[in-house]
Design a protein around this nucleic acid. Structure first.
Lengths: 227, 227
DNA sequence: TTCTGGCATAATGTATACAAATCCGGAACC
DNA sequence: GGTTCCGGATTTGTATACATTATGCCAGAA
């Protein structure tokens, strides 16, 4: 199978490894704080140490793992302060993205986002958390893409990855969930009106609320040790 | 606690290599677009390929070099669009930093920045470009630090590095240089007044103007093809 | 003359071997 | 009994060897 897909999958073993590890970290398979033994991972993935190490360096650059000089790698363990700081930056980035997205918004793009919003509301109505998260993330990514700024898209995605594991764990209280859905409806309206400043403000608020929810969940779930 | 970071200088050859390469790229010793031959660099730096490759992966993650699957690394060549996109994101980040800095501003920090501003104005008065750039960058970094958000500081620094080589090359026309200095004076006033929204606006404008200056210089220096 | 095909060369990707450092356990000493 | 120091085992860091892929040249044919 050396067709067009071969261009991506063929070489770059370390990239594939990095992608796999990223997935495992983002989804929580590799728990925050877990130490990563090189040989162990090599056996598990069926590769040699060289590409694994290169993959780990790449993840470290994205701050998904922390490397300590002669003591190996471990999955980053974000403190409450780290999470708050990341959300703050993410808020500024999404705010910018929203403002730019309003400028570039086309009827087609708007319809795509509107459709996703409807699907997300349906997921919310039937309390389908996984579907909700997926659609939520997709909407935010669409907004970031609509800004048509590749640097913004990449930076946003990198920061988002760091938080994803926590977002996924935060099992919302219902009031906050309802508010989040309402905020999304407002955002859609702002996009429709191409009201950049309002969109920016809405997104900053939305992210701040989300941060609050995650931190609350964090305090409630694990004041001491994880179980 | 990150007291472990003090240990970094000890081993971590690949980190030292990455730092050195970063320096060479940021300062322009390695020109944009230059292809990096692994063995050549190894001989030049007196190391083996393994740590060099790990260093290159780290730089690629920061988008200072571009890796192509079986074809090695080359220093990134930013297009005008890339530069504009980066400045746009940088503007949002510095805007946030400025707003937060106003909240956290203390008399001592303000006095430090004010002293730098005075020095920078002196450098401007005697048309000392290198000193001006150094102080300019130091002031922006102080503002970013004053935001007291490590994620913001790091993200800002990473984006700034990508642009540094270009900033350094842009030999300002005088009118724009004067305006930039005046804008810095306004920023200092906003910090003194702890006027967050104004500070944000000033920084966004300041960065937008800087972007304009760099792009103008770029167009003037290399309008078409270098044939 | 130009284009194509194949081969030689060089570069990157991966694996493995070796060196240095850390960690853990036990024994000796206070 | 507790502390300290030493030594083996494990783990990471670096170098080198081998495999795979790209590149460039030359010959031969249209």
């Amino acid at each position: 199978m050396d067709s067009a897909s071969a261009l991506i999958g063929r070489s770059a073993l370390h990239e594939a490894v990095a992608a796999r590890l990223r997935e495992m970290i983002v989804e929580g398979t590799l728990a925050p704080g877990a130490r990563l033994n090189e040989r162990e991972l090599c056996d598990q993935l069926g590769i040699s140490r060289t590409p694994l190490r290169e993959a780990l360096r790449a993840l470290a650059a994205d701050e998904l793992v922390k490397l300590t000089p002669n003591r190996g790698a471990q999955v980053v363990q974000l403190s409450a302060a780290d999470i708050a700081a990341t959300f703050q930056v993410l808020g500024a980035l999404e705010g910018l993205a929203g403002e730019l997205a309003c400028r570039n918004m086309t009827p087609y793009r708007l319809s795509v986002i509107a459709a996703m919003q409807a699907e997300m509301e349906a997921a919310h109505a039937r309390a389908d958390l996984p579907a909700y998260y997926r659609l939520n993330r997709a909407i935010h990514e669409r907004i970031a893409d609509a800004a048509a700024n590749p640097v913004l898209t990449r930076t946003h995605a990198a920061l988002n990855d760091r938080l994803h594991a926590w977002r996924f764990r935060s099992n919302f209280n219902l009031a906050k969930w309802n508010r989040a859905v309402a905020e999304h409806a407002d955002m859609l309206a702002a996009l429709r009106d191409r009201d950049g400043p309002r969109m920016r403000w809405l997104l900053e608020e939305h992210l701040a609320h989300k941060c609050e929810a995650v931190l609350e969940e964090l305090r409630a779930a694990a004041p001491g040790s994880p179980s």
